[in-house]
Computed example of a mutant assay.
Amino acid sequence: MPELEITRCVSDADHEAWRQVRIQVLPYERTQSLAELREGDTPDRLLLLARVDGVVVGHGLAQRSDLAGGGSVIPRVLEAHRRQGIGTALLERLTQHVADLGLPVLRAGADDDGALAFAHRFGFEEVNREVEQTYRIAGPVPQAPAPDGVEVVTAQERPGLWEASYERFGLEALSDFAVDTPLDVSPERWARDWLADPMFLALDDGEVVGCAGLGRDPDQPTRAENGLTAVRRDWRGRGLAVHLKLRALAWAAEHGIDEVYTWTQDGNAAMRALNTRLGYATTRVGVQLARPVSG
Results as ranks from 00 to 15, higher is better:
residue 26 L to W: 15
residue 95 T to M: 06
residue 263 W to P: 02
residue 164 A to E: 03
residue 295 G to C: 15
residue 195 L to E: 10
residue 71 G to P: 04
residue 248 A to S: 14
residue 65 S to Q: 02
residue 85 G to E: 05
residue 76 R to L: 12
residue 213 G to I: 00
residue 5 E to D: 12
residue 92 E to P: 03
residue 76 R to P: 02
residue 204 D to N: 09
residue 194 W to C: 03
residue 3 E to K: 15
residue 107 R to M: 09
residue 187 P to L: 07
residue 26 L to Y: 12
residue 215 G to M: 12
residue 1 M to R: 11
residue 174 L to S: 07
residue 34 L to W: 08
residue 172 E to I: 08
residue 50 A to F: 02
residue 224 A to M: 12
residue 291 R to H: 06
residue 216 R to C: 03
residue 122 F to Y: 07
residue 199 M to H: 05
residue 180 D to V: 13
residue 256 G to R: 15
residue 251 W to I: 03
residue 218 P to K: 03
residue 77 V to G: 06
residue 180 D to P: 03
residue 5 E to Y: 08
residue 164 A to M: 01
residue 265 Q to D: 15
residue 87 G to L: 05
residue 70 G to A: 13
residue 5 E to H: 11
residue 67 L to V: 09
residue 110 A to M: 04
residue 130 E to L: 14
residue 211 C to A: 13
residue 282 T to Y: 11
residue 249 L to P: 05
residue 118 F to L: 10
residue 179 V to H: 00
residue 291 R to I: 05
residue 284 R to M: 13
residue 101 L to Y: 00
residue 191 A to D: 03
residue 97 H to T: 01
residue 280 Y to E: 03
residue 98 V to P: 04
residue 270 A to H: 12
residue 111 D to K: 05
residue 178 A to M: 12
residue 40 G to M: 12
residue 143 Q to S: 15
residue 91 L to Q: 09
residue 176 D to V: 05
residue 156 Q to R: 14
residue 250 A to M: 06
residue 240 L to Y: 08
residue 168 R to D: 10
residue 149 G to V: 10
residue 228 L to M: 14
residue 167 E to N: 13
residue 292 P to K: 10
residue 175 S to H: 15
residue 278 L to K: 01
residue 74 I to K: 08
residue 12 D to M: 11
residue 128 N to L: 00
residue 268 N to W: 05
residue 155 A to F: 11
residue 12 D to R: 07
residue 71 G to S: 10
residue 108 A to L: 09
residue 145 P to I: 02
residue 54 G to L: 09
residue 229 T to W: 04
residue 10 V to M: 06
residue 182 P to I: 01
residue 238 R to P: 11
residue 252 A to K: 05
residue 169 F to Q: 05
residue 92 E to L: 07
residue 68 A to N: 09
residue 266 D to I: 08
residue 275 N to R: 05
residue 134 T to P: 00
residue 125 E to G: 15
residue 48 L to T: 00
residue 182 P to E: 04
residue 7 T to G: 10
residue 221 P to I: 04
residue 292 P to A: 06
residue 183 L to S: 10
residue 281 A to D: 13
residue 183 L to M: 14
residue 36 E to H: 08
residue 59 H to I: 10
residue 215 G to H: 07
residue 116 L to C: 05
residue 200 F to A: 07
residue 137 I to D: 11
residue 149 G to D: 09
residue 214 L to N: 01
residue 155 A to S: 13
residue 196 A to D: 05
residue 66 D to T: 15
residue 42 T to S: 14
residue 291 R to T: 06
residue 125 E to F: 10
residue 42 T to H: 12
residue 74 I to M: 14
residue 135 Y to G: 01
residue 206 G to I: 06
residue 162 W to G: 02
residue 112 D to G: 08
residue 68 A to D: 01
residue 211 C to G: 15
residue 282 T to V: 13
residue 216 R to I: 11
residue 169 F to I: 07
residue 60 G to L: 00
residue 287 V to E: 07
residue 172 E to F: 11
residue 85 G to K: 12
residue 45 R to T: 15
residue 278 L to W: 00
residue 190 W to N: 00
residue 82 R to G: 01
residue 34 L to V: 03
